[in-house]
């Protein structure tokens, strides 16, 4: 197990390095620079500014400087937010984005899994069809639509919830963004768990459990639930990516001070260090989630666990 973990972790760093290199050079090849917006700069001032951010040096040298700073945990200064370093901005934004994303995923799982199992238990009856239709709606209608519509109904028409803003993390401000973020994930999870549960129910070990006369709740919760979770876990990694992309738009719509907003702002103003910093944080998150998903897989399915061990020892 440890060996397996070690090999997976060893692949993680080179992957991250490739991502960093790709994003670094892609951004710099682009025409335009971070000081285009400040129109009438004197050439000397522009030179000094560029020198201050090492932008006057050859590209490869800049890359070297960036990597050596990064190795020391320094993401550099933000160009568009003059008084902040990128690390400081991420430290402000990340807790907000993480809280939103993880809470949304948790809600989606806690509601989606039971819904999927209920649908499966009533296969092809009206409850199943209702849940199926709702799930389809959840998948088809993006947060881009649900978020403004939720605001319109609850914020503007009913006036029961704030239209936008973070309100220093007051719960009223979180309800609408969380709902918009969780709905599509909830729908996917409900669908996945319905399919997985139907598959599991046909297996011989479930028949065996029933044959031993176990009560239905025990068959479902103790015997059928763990293998139902396996495909869900493999969905978890892409779900994190989905929630993160979703949160960029959600943060924009509701004006929340998360990392996604800095990313968009950074991309628009060519704030190279800021964009790089956010990409690194997100890529690391996705890679770590993939690793976690592999581990959880092993924990849930003894066959996979044995396969991994066998693979790691040979």
């Amino acid at each position: 197990m440890l060996r397996f973990l070690a090999t997976r972790a060893a692949v993680l760093l080179p992957t991250l390095l490739v991502i960093i290199t790709l994003s670094f050079f892609l951004m710099r090849v682009a025409p335009g620079g971070p000081f285009d917006a400040d129109a009438q700069l004197e050439p000397e001032i522009l030179e000094n500014l560029r020198a201050a951010y090492d932008l006057d040096r050859p590209l490869v040298e800049q890359y070297g400087i960036y990597l050596s700073r990064l190795a020391r945990g320094d993401l550099g200064p933000s160009i568009s937010n003059k008084d902040y370093t990128v690390s400081e901005l991420i430290a402000i934004g990340l807790p907000v984005s993480l809280e939103l994303g993880l809470t949304a995923l948790l809600i989606a799982t806690l509601l989606g899994l039971p819904l999927g199992i209920v649908a499966a238990a009533h296969q092809n009856r009206w409850l199943d069809h209702t849940i199926g239709t709702l799930a389809m709606a959840g998948i088809a209608v993006p947060s881009l639509i649900t978020a403004p519509l939720l605001t319109l109904v609850f914020g503007v028409m009913l006036k029961v919830l704030p239209v936008a803003g973070w309100g220093d993390g007051a719960w009223e401000n979180k309800i609408l963004p969380l709902t918009a973020l969780a709905l599509p994930q909830l729908a996917v999870i409900a669908r996945l768990s319905r399919g997985a549960f139907l598959d599991v129910r046909r297996q011989n070990f479930i028949r065996a459990a029933r044959a031993r006369g176990l009560p239905e709740w025990r068959v479902v919760l103790v015997h059928a639930l763990p293998p139902t979770l396996v495909p869900l876990v493999s969905y978890l990694a892409p779900a994190v990516a989905g929630v993160m992309t979703g949160s960029i738009v959600i943060e924009q719509i509701f004006g929340l001070p998360g990392v996604g907003r800095y990313f968009v702002q950074g991309a628009l103003s060519r704030d190279y260090p800021l964009v790089m910093g956010v990409v690194i944080v997100y890529a690391t998150a996705v890679l770590l989630m993939n690793l976690l998903a592999d581990l959880a897989y092993a924990a849930l399915d003894p066959r996979i666990r044995r396969g991994l061990l066998a693979g790691a020892t040979t």
Partner: peptide
């Protein structure tokens, strides 16, 4: 493909769009 997969898709697109105008 695996490496590109780990690159958060939406971010990649935003970077590409920023790059190419």
């Amino acid at each position: 493909v695996d490496v590109l997969y780990a690159l958060p898709l939406f971010f990649a697109i935003i970077i590409l769009v920023t790059v190419f105008g």
